[in-house]
Structure formats: structure tokens, C-alpha cells
Amino acid sequence: MNKEKVLSIRDLSISFKTSAGMVNAIRGVKLDLYRGETLAIVGESGSGKSVTMKAAMGILSSNGEVNSGSINFTYYRDNKKVEVDILKLSKKEMRTRINGKRIAMIFQDPMTSLNPTMTIGAQIMEGMIWHYKTPKREAQKKAIELLELVGITNAEKRMKNYPHQLSGGMRQRVVIAIALACNPDLLICDEPTTALDVTIQAKILELIKDLQRKLNISVIYITHDLGVVAKVADYVAVMYAGKIVEKGNVDEIFYDPRHPYTWGLLSAMPDIDTTDDKLYTIPGTPANLLNKVEGDAFSPRNIYALNIDNRIEPPMFKITDTHYAATWLLHENSPKVEMPEELRSRIDRMLKEAYVDAK
């Protein structure tokens, strides 16, 4: 089956002008997303996850500058296929053609996304009226349907509520309803469950998954929570210091990770069956991108670093058709290095659990 590409990012490079100098925040990102699929972008804070997606939304902050690359987005208008390079569109074109209409974004904290002075009904209807000139009565009907779709009971009454009258979980559901109001092709979720408690978190993730199945939209999650990734993603891209250092399908990243940084992220996940009495942390601090990166940016924190890591940046080595990692440990001449023993036993436990669940 031929899969259809919705988003294709090539050689994206972005820097920010700061009082301390130029920060090279994104350094040659390459990513693909297909229709109906979910991609999770993971990594520590400051690795470039949100900046990459803000570039795709055309909402980079004013001190940001795209140095090179392309972000090709494909959608349908009047049953005709349209392909645009988002970086070539003006701010006005982004607002009228893409934002909210074709690509919608759910932000971390619903309270900062919602207007406290407007009823939630008016906020859901706003996009439909602005983008599609939907008559008010029709927009009202669709807004009620959307609230029901995202699991809000007594939707008609809730239309008249203001954001402060709703709980955190309900506000996040409203934000999802607003994002879906114009039938976007792509939904970007930036840490959509961070501000919520665990039970509500699981419901919101299940809800997004369910909506994706019904509406056949593509979803990108930006998160540092690998527990979330395991529940929702088809594919995973691991970012470090403005680059993708490993990518693959969710099973490859969780059961057969190859980059030492991915080993570190997986080892740092809390696990009730671990024999360690301490939670693992990756040594050192993230790379300072004010400085020019020589070789592998992860090298100073990597206990498996080779001499070459300090001099030459590793290319993406192919492991399978879908699995790639940028580490010199995958070079045929490199010494054989196995993942940490504690992580190996954790993965074995995860595989055993997955086998039991499958049965």
C-alpha cells in the first residue's frame, strides 16, 4: 500500500538571536509524517522539539531565523491535492490558509490557550466562522457536536460557560474541540497532558487516539514522557541538541534502541520492578548551542563515546528500513558495545508483558 506523505521536513536549520549570541537551536532536521499516523518527538527540554513544530505552524518567535531547509505540507482543497512549502508562505497566508484550518495545535496548558473573556462556545465557533464563513446557527450546531465528541456532557449548557468554570480536564477537552473545529489534516500536541492528573491524562490520550481513528488525521506528539509515547505513537523521533539522533517505529525504539541517548531516556523512566534503588539520570547537562558543536553533541555525556565522536559528527546509520540512529557505535569498525544490563532486563520485562497482553 502506498502511504501518503502529509508533512516532509528536510535539512531544517534554525537559529535564535539572543543577548549572549546566536543559538543554533535546530541543526539539519529531517522528518516525514504519513496520513493517519502518529509520530512522537521526544527528548529533554531544549532539544528542539517545540521549535521544529512551531516552524511548521509558522509561529516562530521574532528573534528566530530559518537558515535553511523546507517544510512541505500536503492537503486537499476541493478534492485537489495541494503541496506547499510552509517556510515560503507569508504570515498572512499562514493565518488564512494553514493555521487552525489545515494544521491545528494543542498546547501544554489549556488556560493559556483559552480566552478568559469569551464563552467556550464562541471560542469553538470562531475558527469555523473565520475560515469557512460558516453561518452562526450551523457553527453552533457543530460546536455542540464537537463538545459531545470530546466527551463533554450537557454540551449545550457548557457552550455558555467561561474557561474558569471548567476543570483542567474539561478545559483540555475544549482545546481539542477548538483544534478539530475546522477539520485539520494534522494535529500537533505539545505536551497535551502535562498539566493534568494521571487518570485524566489517560482519558485525554485515549480520546485523541479515538478521534484520530474516526477522522483519519495525522498526529504529532511533542513530549519528554516516554510512557505517553508507548501508548500513542506509531513512529518515534528522538531529538538531542537540535538534531534527530534516532528514529524508528515504536517497537524498535522501545525494544531495540541503539543510541546511547535513547538508552539514557529509557533508563530514566520510573519502573516498579527495577532492582536499582536510585532513578537513573543521564550524566552532565545538555549541550550549549551557543557554541559550535564539534563532532557528536552527545559525546561529553556519553560514557560509550569513541575518539571519533569528538571530531566528526556521526551520520544516520541504517538498522532496518524504518530504524536509523546517528552514533559511531553502529560503524562496522567500532568496538562492540551492549546497552546497560539494567535496561536490557527492563526491555525483557516489557517484552514479556507485551507477550502476555497479546495472549
Rank of each mutant, 00 (worst) to 15 (best):
E145P: 02
K203D: 15
N249Y: 07
E191A: 11
I204T: 09
V250T: 09
N216C: 14
A195K: 11
M125K: 02
K136G: 03
Y235K: 13
D210C: 07
P257Q: 05
T223F: 14
M339D: 04
T18R: 11
T194V: 08
N115Q: 06
T275N: 04
Y132I: 02
M22K: 15
Y162C: 12
N154W: 02
I152W: 00
K209M: 12
R158A: 06
T199G: 13
V228A: 13
L351C: 11
T153M: 05
F254G: 04
G127K: 01
L12A: 13
A55K: 04
L196D: 13
L306Q: 02
P335L: 05
K5D: 13
V219S: 09
L279K: 00
K214P: 10
D190R: 03
Y221P: 11
L351K: 15
D309H: 14
F16I: 10
A297Q: 04
D296M: 09
M350Y: 01
M1N: 05
A25R: 01
I144D: 01
Q140S: 10
P300D: 10
A40C: 13
P283W: 09
D271C: 10
L146F: 05
M269Q: 06
L187S: 08
T193F: 10
G21L: 06
P184C: 12
V356Q: 08
G295Q: 06
A181V: 05
M128H: 01
V175T: 14
A143Q: 05
Q212P: 15
E252A: 03
P116G: 12
K81N: 07
L207K: 03
L205G: 14
W263T: 01
F73R: 05
A155H: 03
L226K: 03
K214M: 12
K80F: 07
K142E: 08
I103H: 02
G248L: 02
S13H: 13
R346G: 00
K352W: 10
A287I: 14
R213F: 06
N216M: 15
E156G: 13
Y261Q: 08
M57I: 10
M94H: 00
M125N: 00
S90E: 09
R301I: 07
L39D: 10
S267N: 12
A326L: 08
G36F: 11
Y280W: 04
S50D: 11
Y162N: 09
L166I: 08
M57R: 01
S13P: 04
G43Q: 05
F254W: 11
Y304D: 13
T327H: 07
S345E: 00
V82D: 12
A56E: 01
P286V: 10
A297M: 06
L207Y: 05
M239Y: 03
N216F: 10
D296R: 02
T281I: 08
D197S: 08
G36S: 11
I129C: 03
S218L: 09
Y240N: 02
N307C: 05
S299E: 07
E342L: 01
C189F: 05
P270H: 00
R102D: 04
K157W: 07
T223G: 12
V356L: 08
M239L: 06
I98F: 03
L166T: 08
K141N: 13
I144M: 00
I176W: 03
T262C: 08
S19R: 15
G36N: 10
A268Y: 04
S113K: 12
N183G: 11
P192I: 10
T18V: 07
L166W: 07
E145S: 11
S218Q: 02
K243S: 15
E338T: 12
I272T: 11
C189G: 06
Q123E: 09
K359M: 09
I71D: 02
T327S: 15
